[in-house]
Amino acid sequence: MIKVGLIGAGKMGISHLSLLGAHPDVEVAGVSDTSKMVLDALKKYTSFPCYTDYEEMLRKAKPDAVFVAVPTRFHADMVQNAMERDAHIFAEKPLCLTVLDGQKLVEIATRKNLVNQVGYHNKFIGTFREVKRLVENGYLGDIFHFVGEAYGPVVVRQKQNNWRSNPAEGGGCLLDYASHVIDLINYVVGPITKIKGSILKSFYSKNVEDSVFSLLEVSSEVSGVLSVNWSDETYRKMSTTLTIIGSKGKIVCDANELKVHFKTTDCPQGYSKGWNVKYITDFTDNVDFYLRGEEYSAQVDYFIKAIQKKVPNNINTFQSAWHTDKVISMIKQSINN
């Protein structure tokens, strides 16, 4: 059994906690949260040991691994603190608010040889994994251009009062929403190296941006567009799409559907010349316990298996999340310029 502790039982934390509670190889050793209401509910109806102070939880519960699902502002200290106690870490995204903080966490995790993972769950979605496979094996030929998009209905009116509306805590569309798309582009097309220009626009929020539009460059040959808006009420929930155009074909992919067009018959097995449409059902393995989407269960399971040394710890590492932090910081700078 892996003893796991959770810091932060908010929206993502509670969801992780439920998955951990159902995981056959996990014992939930402790949960910490500062909200009395949430903690009282957990105390009353679950068997998990609860703490208001996360350091007390680390000290007393002595978890082998810790899930950190608090506002991004607290990641640097809490993750470092837990790693100093030799705990493997699953942190929510984005990794840190500054590039320096992220670098420090990457260094500690590497030095102490701890399993480290960040919650960019798109990499555990079957359609996006297939896109990665197609691109990596060169089936699209030379990549010319890509478009990464995400839209959803988070802020659709002028009203807000939590940490996601506070830029100092890690709020805003860039950190909360666009980070997913940036991370996916880094993973599939290659690391973004330059920002040619950005527009961050607010529609409803007073203190943070509600949308991010950027021109990105991977290399002098490969460039793309980032278009993210969390104030689009025509979407029922967050919807992420990746379009990639190459010399041999084109991909349009979201979490449900993969559409691939090949110019010639020179294409991978299972595909043919012209349009190919495949669905998430073709790429999804069953999970042992389902909550909100297979990808959430799969990423938690992958982390646990990495601790058990059943899989390599090479998806969503601190290192890759740190690169996403760097791109976020580059986008911010591109505005100031």
Partner: peptide, 15 residues
């Protein structure tokens, strides 16, 4: 669920 999920993102659990 989405009514509440989007509200939790915006307002937090207590909100």
């Amino acid at each position: 669920a989405h009514k509440y999920a989007n509200a939790v993102t915006e307002l937090g659990i207590v909100g």
